[in-house]
Design a binder for these strands. Structure first.
Length: 818
DNA sequence: AGGCTCCACGTTTTT
DNA sequence: CGTGGAGCCT
C-alpha cells in the first residue's frame, strides 16, 4: 500500500480524497482537478480503506469521461486487476447493464434492442401512421421531445397523464403510453428507458435496490450539476442501504438544462444530505490568469451561483486573440491559417481545438482545414453508427438476434431492394395486429403458407393457432396471397436472417458472420448501384465497421466485457441464439455501438479537434479557438427573454473559455450564411463582457475592430442592453481576403524566426523562379505555382490548388511555403 | 414497385 | 444551402 501521492494534492483535494463514508459534495471549479480527486479517491478507498474494487461505482455522463477515468485509475493502482473490477460507467451504460441483468422483471428478453434517436423516430412515425395521425417531421419531433422530457423527469405514462393540465397534454401522455407499449412489443428500450427502466424496476421492487446497494457501497458521480431527476432518483435507489454518495460538480458548468438537468440537485445537496462533507476546490491549475479572468468576466453576469472564487498562481500569459472576419468563410480561413502556422511552429495538433456552438458550424471549418492540409478530427455530429450503411448492416444483425425488433426489420426488409414495397410492408404491419402474430418477421412467415383456406405451414402457427375473426383472417390472407416479386423478396429476406442466425450459432467470432452477411445481402453492390458518387466513402465506412468489429474482438479489454455480459445472462438461458459465443459478442458489440457516439478514436494520428462546446466539457487544450462569437449564434437563444436560458448560454461560454490552457482565440464574422442567405451579425455579448485589456485584436481583422468604447456601462446590473453599435465599420463593406498582407508581427508571441517565415520573400523580378514553388492562400489552401506573368513585385500567378483546381492569384495574396 | 422531381423546412446542445 | 418527404409518373 503506497499512498504517498497524497502529498501531491492540495489540502481541499486531500480532504475530498480521504473522505471515507457518508455523503460528500465536491464543488470543483473548472480546472481544479476534479477528475484527479475522483480517481485518487477510488485508489484511496482501495489502497487505504481496503474497499473491494467491485464495491465502488463511478458514474459519468460521457463515454469519454468514463474512459479517461478508467485510464487514470489504472495508472494509480498497482494491482491492475483490481482497477478493472471497479465499475466505471456512464449513466446510460449502467442503466443498460441493470436492465439486461433484470430483463425479465422489466418484461424484456435478455436480447432486447436499444433504440437510438432515429430508431425511436421511426417507431413514432409508424405509430402515428397506425393511429391515422399526422406524421410530419414536426409532429414526430414533438412526441419524441415530449416522451424524452417525461422520462428525464422520471414520469411514467400514468404519472404524465395525471399531471396533464389540458387536452393536448392528455393526448401526448396517451401517445407516450402507446409508444411504451410498442417498445415493449418490439423488445426494445430507448435512451430514456436506460435510466427510467431501472428506476421503474426499483420502484416496483425496492428489495432489488436494497440488494444492489449492499454490494455497491461507494457511489461517485461526476458532473453532478447535470443530473436530471430520473438520474437523481436512480442514485437515490442505489444508495438505499447507505449514504456513501460522493458527487463532484460545478454549478457554473451546468449546461444540460435542456435535457432536464436540475441545478437544485447540486445547489440543494447539503439540504438533502444534512451530514454532507463539503469541499470546495478553487485553485485552477489549467489556465493562464488572463484566460481565467476572461472566464470570470463572463460568468460574473450570472446570479444564483454557489459562492466560489476560482484563482490561479499561473502568470498572466498571452492576451486573448480576437479576429473578426468579413464573413463566416473568412473566419474559418483565418482559423485554419492560424492553426497551420501553429503547426509549422511545432505545436502538436492534439493540443489544438476548435469549439463552436452548433454542429452545423463545423462544416466550414472542416472545409478550410482540408484546404490547408491540416489533419482534423470531428467529434460528435453525425455519429459513425448513425450512418445509413452502418445502421442498415447493424439492423440485419439486430433483426437476426431480436426478431421482435420491428424497427430493425422494417429498416432492411427491402434494403437492398428486393421487391418488398410500401404496400407489402403495410400488409405485414396490419397482420402484426392479429393476435398470435407478434412481429413483422412472423408476419412475413405467413407468405410461405399456401394460401387462403389452407392450414398454416409454419410450425410457429400450428403451435400457436391464429384467430378466425373476419378482419384477422383477411389480414392474414392478404399476406398468404402475395405472389411474384414481393413473395420472393420476403422469402429471400427470411433466408438471409435464418442463415445469419445459423452463422451466429456456428462461429465463435462475429467477423465471419459479418462477412457472410455482406455477401448474402450483396450490400456492397447495393451501395455501388444506389449511390455511385458516394459509394467509395460508404464502402470505406463499411470497411471501418468490419474493422471495428474485428478490433472489438481483439481488444484486450473485450474478454472482460464478454464475461460481464455473460454474468448478466439469466442462469436458465437455454436459447442457443442467446448463449452462443458469436451471439454474445454481437450483444456486447451492439450495446457498445448504441451507447458510444463514434468509433472511439482508434486512429493514433495527431489531429486538431473540432467539436461543439457541449462536447468539450471536461477536456482541456493548450490552444482553443472559440468561433462564431456573435449574437444569435452564441448565445443561441430560442426564447430571447428567458433569463435562465441566457444564463445557461453564459455558463456554456464559461465552459468553453476555461478549456484553454495557454492561448485562447476568439473569432466571429460580420456576415454569416444561414439557409444559404447572408445575414449581418453583431458581436456576442459574451465577447463584450470580457475586459478589453485582456484582448488583442488581430490586425488581419479587416476593418473589424470592435467598438469597445460604445459598450454600455451598466451591464453589471445583470440586464445588459447590448443593442449598442457593435461593429465599428460599414456592414456593407466588401470582403477583403488579403489579410495576409498584415504585418507578420500581429501576434506578439511570434518569435523572429517565425516572423521571417511570414515575411514576403525578397522581390524577385525573375518570376519564373516562382514556378514549382508551394504556396498557400487564405481561400484556396495550399497549391503549386504553374506559371507566372506580369511585372513588379506582384506578378499574377497561375496556381494549381488540389482543393479547387487552377486559379489565377496575385503574388501578394499568397504565402510562399517553399 | 420504384424512381424521379419538387418543395417545405430547418439549427441548438447529447446519451 | 442541404435534406428528406410527398406525390407523381413510368
Amino acid at each position: 500500500m503506497n499512498t504517498d501521492w497524497i502529498e501531491n494534492l492540495n489540502p481541499p483535494q486531500q480532504r475530498a480524497v480521504t473522505h471515507h463514508t457518508g455523503p460528500l459534495l465536491v464543488l470543483a471549479g473548472a480546472g481544479s482537478g476534479k477528475t484527479r480527486v475522483l480517481t485518487h479517491r477510488v485508489a484511496y478507498l482501495i489502497d487505504h480503506f481496503d474497499t473491494p474494487p467491485e464495491a465502488i461505482v463511478a458514474v459519468t455522463f460521457t463515454n469519454r469521461a468514463a474512459a479517461e477515468m478508467r485510464h487514470r485509475v489504472d495508472a494509480l493502482l498497482d494491482d491492475k486487476k483490481a482497477a478493472s473490477r471497479v465499475v466505471i460507467s456512464t449513466f446510460h451504460s449502467l442503466g443498460a447493464r441493470l436492465l439486461r441483468r433484470f430483463a425479465p422483471r422489466a418484461r424484456l428478453s435478455w436480447n432486447f434492442s436499444i433504440y437510438d434517436d432515429s430508431d425511436s423516430r421511426r417507431l413514432i412515425g409508424a405509430l402515428l401512421e397506425s393511429q391515422g395521425l399526422e406524421k410530419d417531421r414536426a409532429s414526430i419531433r414533438h412526441h419524441q421531445n415530449y416522451i424524452d422530457s417525461q422520462k428525464n423527469r422520471a414520469l411514467t405514462p400514468n404519472q404524465a397523464l395525471e399531471q396533464a393540465f389540458d387536452g393536448r397534454a392528455e393526448e401526448d401522455a396517451q401517445f407516450y403510453e402507446l409508444y411504451q407499449k410498442a417498445l415493449r412489443e418490439a423488445d426494445a428500450v430507448d435512451f430514456g428507458d436506460l435510466i427510467m427502466g431501472p428506476v421503474n424496476l426499483f420502484r416496483q421492487s425496492p428489495e432489488l435496490a436494497l440488494h444492489l446497494s449492499e454490494s455497491w457501497q461507494f457511489l461517485m458521480v461526476d458532473e453532478f450539476q447535470d443530473t436530471n431527476p430520473a438520474q437523481y432518483e436512480l442514485l437515490d435507489h442505489l444508495t438505499t442501504a447507505h449514504d456513501n454518495l460522493a458527487v463532484v460538480g460545478d454549478d457554473d458548468q451546468a449546461i444540460y438544462g435542456w435535457r432536464g438537468a436540475d441545478p437544485t440537485h447540486i445547489l440543494g445537496f447539503e439540504d438533502a444530505f444534512r451530514s454532507a462533507n463539503i469541499v470546495k476546490l478553487e485553485q485552477n491549475y489549467r489556465s493562464t490568469a488572463v484566460i481565467l479572468d476572461a472566464a470570470n468576466d463572463v460568468i460574473a453576469h450570472n446570479s444564483h451561483r454557489h459562492s466560489k472564487r476560482l484563482w490561479t498562481d499561473r502568470p498572466d500569459g498571452d492576451p486573448i486573440v480576437v479576429f473578426s472576419g468579413a464573413d463566416d468563410r473568412e473566419e474559418a480561413g483565418y482559423v485554419a491559417e492560424t492553426i497551420f502556422d501553429l503547426l509549422r511552429r511545432g505545436t502538436d495538433a492534439e493540443d489544438i481545438a476548435i469549439f463552436y456552438r452548433t454542429n452545423a458550424q463545423g462544416r466550414l471549418f472542416e472545409e478550410q482545414m482540408r484546404q490547408w492540409g491540416v489533419a482534423y478530427r470531428i467529434v460528435g455530429g453525425l455519429s459513425f453508427y448513425a450512418r445509413e450503411e452502418i445502421k442498415d448492416l447493424l439492423a440485419y444483425l439486430r433483426a437476426a438476434l431480436n426478431p421482435s425488433d420491428d424497427v430493425a426489420t422494417a429498416r432492411v426488409i427491402n434494403t437492398p431492394r428486393r421487391g418488398v414495397g410500401k404496400s407489402t410492408i403495410e400488409k405485414l404491419r396490419r397482420a402484426t395486429a392479429v393476435d398470435g402474430v407478434f412481429n413483422l418477421q412472423e408476419a412475413a412467415l405467413l407468405a410461405n403458407d399456401n394460401g387462403p383456406g389452407e392450414p398454416p405451414q409454419s410450425d410457429l402457427f400450428t403451435a400457436r393457432p391464429l384467430p378466425s375473426g373476419p378482419d384477422q383472417v383477411e389480414a392474414i390472407d392478404d399476406i398468404r396471397s402475395l405472389r411474384g416479386v414481393s413473395r420472393r423478396g420476403l422469402t429471400e429476406f427470411q433466408t438471409i436472417l435464418e442463415a445469419t442466425r445459423e452463422d451466429l450459432l456456428h462461429f465463435d467470432s462475429l467477423t465471419p458472420v459479418m462477412e457472410r452477411l455482406m455477401e448474402r445481402t450483396a450490400y456492397a453492390d447495393h451501395v455501388q448501384h444506389s449511390d455511385p458518387e458516394r459509394a467509395d466513402d460508404r464502402l470505406r465506412n463499411i470497411g471501418e465497421l468490419v474493422n471495428a468489429i474485428e478490433e472489438f474482438e481483439l481488444d484486450p479489454g473485450t474478454p472482460a466485457l464478454i464475461d460481464a455480459v455473460k454474468k448478466l445472462m439469466p442462469d436458465d438461458a437455454d436459447d442457443p441464439l442467446t448463449t452462443s459465443e458469436a451471439a454474445i459478442h454481437l450483444r456486447a458489440f451492439l450495446d457498445r455501438s448504441a451507447l458510444v457516439q463514434s468509433t472511439d478514436t482508434n486512429d493514433d494520428t495527431s489531429a486538431v479537434t473540432l467539436m461543439t462546446i457541449h462536447g468539450s466539457k471536461g477536456l482541456e487544450f493548450d490552444h482553443v479557438f472559440l468561433v462564431g462569437m456573435e449574437e444569435d449564434t452564441f448565445p443561441n437563444l430560442r426564447n430571447p427573454n428567458d433569463p435562465e436560458e441566457l444564463a445557461e448560454e453564459r455558463r456554456l461560454a464559461y465552459v468553453a473559455i476555461t478549456r484553454a490552457r495557454n492561448q485562447l482565440y476568439i473569432s466571429n464574422a460580420r456576415r454569416r450564411r444561414t439557409y444559404g442567405q447572408f445575414r449581418n451579425t453583431e458581436p456576442s455579448r459574451f465577447l463584450l463582457h470580457i475586459d478589453s485589456k485582456r484582448l488583442l485584436v488581430d490586425p488581419r481583422s479587416t476593418s473589424a475592430e470592435i467598438d469597445y468604447a460604445a459598450r454600455t456601462k451598466h451591464s453589471s446590473s445583470g440586464r445588459s442592453s447590448t443593442k449598442s453599435p457593435s461593429w465599428s465599420f460599414d456592414q456593407s463593406s466588401q470582403q477583403n481576403d488579403d489579410f495576409n498582407q498584415a504585418p507578420p508581427d500581429w501576434d506578439q508571441s511570434y518569435d523572429a524566426d517565425v516572423a521571417a517565415l511570414l515575411e514576403p520573400p525578397p522581390v524577385d523580378t525573375a518570376h519564373e523562379k516562382l514556378v514549382g514553388l508551394t504556396v498557400s492562400h487564405t481561400k484556396f489552401g495550399v497549391g503549386e505555382v504553374l506559371s507566372a506573368s506580369g511585372s513588379g513585385d506582384n506578378p499574377l500567378l497561375i496556381i494549381n490548388f488540389p482543393a479547387v483546381g487552377e486559379q489565377s492569384v496575385y503574388r501578394k495574396f499568397l504565402k510562399i511555403l517553399g
